[in-house]
């Protein structure tokens, strides 16, 4: 089944949005994500470019500054809500995992 657009976020989407909690240059996200995840997650340049465009269209982020071709972005309220929902979804998964495996350990 294809994933409904932005209903759940992929790992890369999640980290890109996380980088944009504070104002940030698009290009800097390419370095921020690997350093944030100790190199576990890398975002491709084409993927980042396309996702930023889609996030802008969906009003998940907004442009704050345009200096020539360098643009800075920040999360909108909608983006913050989306990130929070994703956080809650991941937390729910963790709780479900613990419920299953911790029960086994007790038994």
């Amino acid at each position: 089944m294809p994933r409904a657009k932005f209903q759940t976020l992929t790992e890369q989407m999640f980290y890109i949005l996380l980088c944009l909690k504070d104002e940030c240059y698009g290009l800097d996200i390419l370095d921020k994500v690997p350093s944030m995840t100790a190199g576990r997650v890398n975002v491709g340049s084409g993927t980042l470019y396309n996702l930023l465009e889609q996030f802008l269209d969906a009003q998940i982020i907004r442009e704050t500054k345009v200096e020539g071709r360098r643009r800075t972005y920040i999360l909108t309220e909608k983006g913050k809500d989306m990130l929070k929902k994703e956080y809650e979804r991941i937390n729910a998964q963790v709780t479900d995992y613990k419920n299953i495996f911790e029960k086994e350990e007790i038994v």
Binding site: P2, R3, T10, Q12, N42, V43, G44, S45, G46, T47, N50, L51
Partner: peptide, 14 residues
């Protein structure tokens, strides 16, 4: 190198 496209779904859309 890190590939240019790291989200296959997005790549197919593009």
């Amino acid at each position: 190198p890190i590939p240019i496209e790291t989200e296959p779904t997005l790549e197919v859309q593009t």
